[in-house]
Amino acid sequence: MLDADESVELRALQARAYGRAGALNEAEAARLRELETGRTRGTEPTAPRSAAPRPPEPENIEAAASAVVEGDAAPVSAQARTTGVTPGDSALAALRRHWRLAVAITAVFAVIGLALGWLIFADRGPAPMQLTAQQQEWQSAIVASGDFDPGSVRAITQEEGVVIWFATKNESANVCLVLAHEHATAPACTTREQATVQGVTATLAKPVSASQTYDIQAQMFLTQEGEPAVITRSYITSSQSSSMFASEAEAEAATTLAEQTGLDRRTILVVGYDDEVPIWTGIDTSTQRYCLVYDGSMPDPPMACDDSLMLADADRTLVLDVADDGETTRYEYQFGYGQQYLTVTKGWESEDAARE
């Protein structure tokens, strides 16, 4: 059994004997043999003296060391000399032990690959609009007209009961916007280049009553992918007035407001909203004064009027204060030939009230 110093000496000699950097002389080879014999003597059972193998000659040890250093074969590690297992065998054994982990990692990468493929190549075109039986009849009539490429007519959206279709013609050279309902159809077409830059616009009037119609306007642009993108607008108009209203209910409210306040029905319009409450303007029929009216859904609504001659100036303002539950809201409407806008101030207090 070797002591600590001898073990250090043994490792140094082995490194020189079996490493790439050099060889041992005769004395060093003999010392290496002596130390290796002393290390194994304490751990192995003592064999009968007659059966003990003859130790190798120093010349043989030196030759073996030289063969390791100068030979073509790669040197074998200390672990391989001790256990008889090469690094390749160790890696193969480790792979066998962890095959389940390898399979799991492969499966995860496969799932990630499928997800990325779906994100990159999935069809992201707009979902087809669901049509009622009546709307399907309108579409069938559009297709039967023969004005558009077969299979190109596609419903996109609807506005106030009017359906808006996308279609192509002249073998897709032109793109079309088609508005239709049970009473009328309004197509508009242009080239793909024009639709990409400036869009294409179509308008259709839908009867609401004997004196009112819903004007539906749609504007379509083409995206970089060639898909239609549509903007729609709708408002109520009347042959008796140049005013436009957002809904049929709003148009009816204007008629009621004219009856209650004496404002000229042809001049009444909405200039803004306080939450969902409309703020109106109009000209008094008897005095020709320009008026600002709050809500208008009840008899004798809050109203402030001024001389209509003020319209000749660029920047004039109508002011109306409305008190509700102890809080005053001020409505200021600037009008004239300049910019027109409504300002709503909540919790407003007059200068007199502030001084008190």
Rank of each mutant, 00 (worst) to 15 (best):
S297W: 00
L311N: 12
G151L: 05
A141S: 15
S297K: 00
T43H: 13
R289H: 13
A74K: 14
Y341T: 06
G336V: 00
Q139T: 09
V85I: 11
R192S: 09
R20F: 10
E259M: 07
G22V: 05
S211P: 01
R54K: 11
I61E: 05
I105Q: 10
T203R: 03
E193I: 11
V197H: 07
Y214H: 10
V103W: 12
T86W: 08
L24A: 04
L114V: 05
G84S: 02
G226K: 03
R192W: 07
T203F: 09
Y273L: 09
A155H: 00
S145Y: 04
A52S: 11
R49V: 11
L101A: 15
A73D: 14
T343P: 02
T82E: 12
L119R: 09
W280V: 01
N60T: 15
D313F: 07
G272Y: 03
T343R: 05
F148V: 01
G42I: 01
A353P: 00
V175G: 14
C189Y: 11
D321W: 03
E57N: 12
T281D: 03
A254W: 01
A115D: 04
D149V: 02
V322F: 01
Y235T: 01
T345V: 04
V200G: 08
A80Q: 11
D147C: 00
K169V: 00
S239F: 14
A4R: 12
Q217L: 13
I61T: 04
L32F: 07
T256Q: 10
I216S: 01
M129N: 06
L95G: 13
E225L: 12
H183K: 11
A122T: 02
V271P: 03
E252K: 14
Q240L: 15
Q334L: 05
A102K: 08
A47K: 14
V277A: 02
Y333E: 03
Q130A: 15
G226L: 02
P56D: 04
S50V: 12
V76L: 08
M303D: 05
G161Q: 00
R355K: 15
E227F: 11
G262N: 01
I236H: 00
A202H: 11
T46G: 10
I112M: 14
F335T: 06
A78M: 07
V69G: 15
I164W: 03
A63P: 00
A21F: 14
V108S: 06
T191C: 05
Q130K: 08
A141M: 10
H98M: 11
A173T: 11
T328N: 04
P45R: 04
R16M: 08
D264R: 05
G84Q: 01
D325A: 13
L204S: 06
G272L: 01
A195R: 03
P150F: 05
R81Y: 02
N170Q: 13
S209Y: 06
I268T: 06
E137H: 09
W99D: 13
T237H: 06
R20Q: 14
E227R: 12
Y235S: 05
A93S: 14
H181F: 11
A15F: 07
E327T: 14
R100E: 10
D315G: 06
R49L: 12
R266H: 07
Q224M: 08
R289Q: 12
E62R: 14
K169S: 07
G88C: 03
T196P: 00
T223C: 06
A323F: 08
